[in-house]
Design a protein around this nucleic acid. Structure first.
Lengths: 199, 199
DNA sequence: TATCTTAATGAACGTTTGTTCTTAAGATAA
DNA sequence: TTATCTTAAGAACAAACGTTCATTAAGATA
């Protein structure tokens, strides 16, 4: 009998239960049953429930937005800034709409205040990378004289805030709004921002 | 011996534990100890843990934003729209910065995806009242010809989104940013919005 | 005074929790 | 082949869980 990749499977099922019942509400036995093994077998792979939680966090921390959404063909659109921003936002929405990302934002929202989550989870930290990318983009636009001279950090927040609200409402829970509608809202936001900052 | 208001106290302590450990992570025994009574005494006031949770929700649902932040003296500032919006945002921030409101948003974020919370808790529903107030305000401004003709629903969202991000980051968790700094950020946002929509 | 209601106690219940232990079978390496 | 390593099962553990119970004592009501 081959060894199936139980270790990975435990993480997947644990994430499912953590995001449905919270860390405390999910039990080792339920997770084990979902994996198809006994609860004692779990401990051959992780030495505690907390270690499972931390392993999930480590997996997400190792991922980066940049690689997923700042593709080369996107960067070539920089000469059409409004279209660039729209496509950038669209890629971000797509990324956030991923099944894995949706689960992670749920875990973040649920556990960021608890003892186990407060060490590693915070919305600010989660948005840090996106913020710095946006800041870079707007800084470049200012330098090239295509938008007004405003604080790029502030512009990054204005850009992000609306999308973050979209995400919180339509891309994390049961509120299953269709993707096209989200694109529509996102585009309208970009148009608003663009008309406010363009020279 | 007078009867102390144990019923109310149970709700307060339960909310504390729910927002620190999640609904599942908080136990009747811990809550009872915090109140100063035995766990069995809890059941003289509420017939189950779930009933305590629902009682907390009911208390928050019965409250309304309008009464707290749409005061008469604020409405008299409507002839100075930018100042009005700034003061409106400030009042909202103050309201959100209330100890009770902070606890509730935490409960909302934590339990909105769990079995017990999904029936009654949603970010969209929580923002509904604020949205409709904002919509009313912007509709009025459009009618009076002092701002551009844009979709008032959209303007309400743009107005709300940035403040919601501020709230999520600085007014719900351990990220204890001082109030003056939040006002500052809020004002800059209003100035940005105002310059974008004024005629 | 007698009765009723309220709010508390402490023990007990059956269940579930996270975790540990021993044991065994298949995979791997010598 | 033998020896070792990995992964699983199943029983067991003490602790904690939500809840129920009979009992008690103190105000409220009559």
């Amino acid at each position: 009998m081959k060894y199936p990749n139980t270790k990975k499977l435990i993480l997947e099922k644990a994430l499912d239960y953590f995001t449905q019942k919270g860390y405390s509400g999910a039990s080792i036995r339920q997770i084990a049953r979902a994996v198809g093994i006994r609860e004692s077998a779990i401990y051959n792979h992780y030495k505690s429930k907390e270690e499972i939680f931390n392993a999930i966090l480590a997996e997400f921390k190792s991922r980066t937005i940049s690689k997923n959404i700042l593709s080369d063909d996107l960067l070539e659109e920089l000469d059409n800034p409004e279209k660039f921003l729209k496509d950038f936002a669209k890629k971000l929405v797509d990324h956030w709409n991923t099944e894995d990302e949706k689960k992670f934002i749920r875990l973040l929202l649920m556990e960021q205040f608890t003892k186990i989550g407060s060490k590693e989870l915070s919305t600010t930290e989660y948005l840090t990378e996106l913020r710095s990318i946006c800041k870079l983009i707007f800084s470049e636009m200012i330098k090239n004289g295509i938008i007004k001279k405003l604080d790029p950090n502030f512009l990054a927040d204005e850009f992000t805030a609306y999308l973050f609200l979209l995400r919180t409402e339509y891309m994390s829970g049961s509120n299953n709004t269709a993707a096209p509608r989200i694109y529509e809202l996102s585009n309208r936001h970009i148009e608003f921002i663009w008309n406010s900052i363009k020279i």
